[in-house]
Write a protein that binds this DNA or RNA. Structure first.
Lengths: 125, 125
DNA sequence: CATTACGTTTACGTTAACGTAAAGTTGCCG
DNA sequence: CGGCAACTTTACGTTAACGTAAACGTAATG
């Protein structure tokens, strides 16, 4: 289990370009250490990148994803702030739940199409 | 149950702008009838729009979504073609399954954060 | 008949998320 | 020491998915 990674190692591992990784840093979503001018990524950076890419796959904007990642920290603030926070979490959850329903429907549709195909194929023979 | 809709009715119903709907038509993903110059949308168009927006919510590109919608038709072609078709379906399914796993994880994470919040809130009182 | 509401086409503008190219630095290998 | 491989910064380019504005048509309403 490696401790640190170069930018191209990370790029390779996650199937993105180095430009993409630098772009995320440029936007403030990654902050690797430096060794001279070289970027050094640690486990935490790697995790951060994984979370960003996960959000991306789900069609979230970088900003939205970053907001979600923020939420993963331990909850702080007074009662009022916490309640606001909870309601923001609820919003995100509602959005994700909707995506999940959409996903279920699409998967069902695909499956039934595939079954149809198999039936037609079985008949051809 | 209405038979036809104007563009702004559809826009309102789905929470998009008329520009968006015209854009989809411009790209060939919608083809409403005309009454003079006015666009008239029927149930099939409405369904088509719903499917497009569903794909969008899941972060699919318009092209990808259109490809999926295409698949919903009844399967055609000879054996070879059908087998290729099935494997394309499988690819889509794999992609969607991955999204689903991503979603599950994010939802779990959000839930546990929310629980933490409630615990902190309970302690504050 | 003027205004208001809704529709149309045409066309240029905008934003997010990178791609791509140029030009330079660093470290190691033969 | 020459050269390649991997890294760097800077900066302009690109694409999808619309936004926005102008300029016009039509039809119902006060």
């Amino acid at each position: 289990m490696k401790q640190t990674y170069s930018i191209s190692e990370l790029a390779k591992e996650f199937g993105v370009t180095t430009r993409t990784i630098r772009f995320y840093e440029e936007k403030g979503y990654l902050a690797p250490r430096r060794e001279g001018t070289r970027r050094i990524y640690r486990q935490a950076d790697r995790t951060q990148l994984r979370l960003i890419l996960r959000g991306k796959r789900l069609g979230l904007s970088l900003d939205d994803t970053a907001e979600m990642i923020q939420m993963y920290g331990s909850p702080q603030g007074n009662r009022k702030q916490l309640e606001i926070f909870v309601s923001r979490i609820e919003e995100k959850r509602a959005e994700l739940e909707r995506k999940r329903r959409d996903l279920e429907v699409m998967l069902n549709d695909l499956q039934s199409v595939e079954e149809k195909c198999h039936m037609v194929l079985a008949e051809i023979r």
